[in-house]
């Protein structure tokens, strides 16, 4: 079993899928000669040629729109949009088209495409630092994946490329250098499966993407004080598998939900609603949300860190639900 960065895990999945299936091709800004803004596709232009690793104009609408067309016409496009902030311009193609091709055609056509994009921040200010997984996770017909570990990124991206439905795959820029174990032999992970990443009896922490790591760090530190947190990762946001969360909650009676979303109408609200629906009788404390405050993300580092949640916020929330 090899240690591998999240970036290399995504790259390995792309290369393997392109070698396996010649219908798979990549397009997006900078993906070709330059190898991608986050260096994910580095070297792939030389491996597969410009027809299958296609640099495009700065045209988010046509990157997603042409991917929808190519997918309907039998290819398996993997379109890359640098960040979700720019993918807002692709949402018409994803929501009004990709998500509805199968339905509005009564099942005759399908749209097996993947839109890869990123969430993330780091002194890039308000319009480079937003995360909108809840916008797309709301839409029937789409699947939304936000992996937190290299192994999950690898196994889920491969599954996404082979999936017959459109998938929005959101990587996190802070995670590209994170290392983790990824088995050498090829594997796929099922889309729509949540996992317990750390077992504990006192509080259930639900998180995904970067906040999964903050949750694990918080759990490590709290363990030194004798508080055992169970950390549940939800790498697929749609279809959402909350069975492990509900099961865990029925054991701990308390939950903290940690996301980078703004407070209000976020993924956390859906999780909380489902816990109330499925485990109301087990509730020992109000469910606590750890989120970003509702403010555009500022540029200055001190301001930015004040507006982004981390492990300290999670620890405080855990102590509050235990009080």
């Amino acid at each position: 079993m090899a240690q591998m960065t999240y970036r290399d895990a995504v790259r390995r999945a792309l290369i393997e899928e392109m070698e396996r299936d010649e219908r798979v091709f990549i397009m997006g800004e900078e993906v070709g000669v330059w190898g991608g803004t986050f260096a994910v596709t580095r070297g792939m232009y030389d491996m597969f040629g410009e027809k299958r690793v296609r640099d495009t104009p700065i045209s988010e609408l046509v990157i997603a729109g042409a991917a929808v067309g190519a997918a309907m016409n039998g290819l398996r496009p993997v379109a890359e949009i640098m960040t979700f902030n720019f993918a807002l311009l692709s949402l018409d193609a994803m929501i009004n088209h990709a998500a509805k091709v199968r339905y509005m055609f009564g099942g005759q056509f399908e749209c097996p495409m993947v839109l890869r994009t990123t969430s993330g921040w780091g002194q890039l200010s308000a319009t480079h630092s937003q995360t909108f997984e809840n916008y797309v996770a709301h839409v029937p017909g789409l699947k939304v994946i936000m992996p937190g570990t290299p192994a999950d990124a690898y196994g889920l991206l491969k599954a996404a490329i082979r999936d017959p439905d459109p998938v929005i795959f959101i990587e996190h820029t802070h995670l590209y250098r994170v290392r983790g174990e990824v088995p050498d032999e090829e594997f796929l992970l099922p889309i729509g499966q949540s996992n317990i990443k750390r077992e504990g009896r006192d509080v259930t922490i639900v998180a995904y993407s970067r906040m999964l790591h903050e949750a694990l760090k918080a759990a490590d530190e709290l363990a030194k004080e004798g508080i055992e947190c169970e950390v549940v990762d939800i790498p697929t946001l749609r279809p959402l598998d909350l069975r492990p969360v509900v099961q865990s909650f029925k054991k701990t009676y308390r939950a903290v939900l940690a996301t980078e979303q703004w407070l209000g109408y976020g993924v956390d609200a859906e999780i909380a609603a489902q816990i109330y629906e499925h485990a109301f009788d087990y509730l020992d404390a109000p469910i606590k949300r750890v989120t970003a405050p509702p403010v555009p993300l500022p540029y200055n580092k001190h301001l930015e860190l004040a507006a982004m949640p981390d492990k300290e916020d999670i620890k405080r929330a855990v102590l509050e639900v235990l009080r």
């Binding site: 091709f25 027809k51 309907m72 193609a93």
Partner: peptide, 25 residues
């Protein structure tokens, strides 16, 4: 014949993609 959605001219990028697939093959 590919179904359209109601926002106008969104079929144009898709048509470019359909034709791209023909060319690629």
């Amino acid at each position: 014949v590919v179904t359209a959605s109601s926002p106008v001219s969104t079929q144009i990028p898709q048509a470019a993609g359909i034709a791209y697939a023909h060319k690629l093959r």
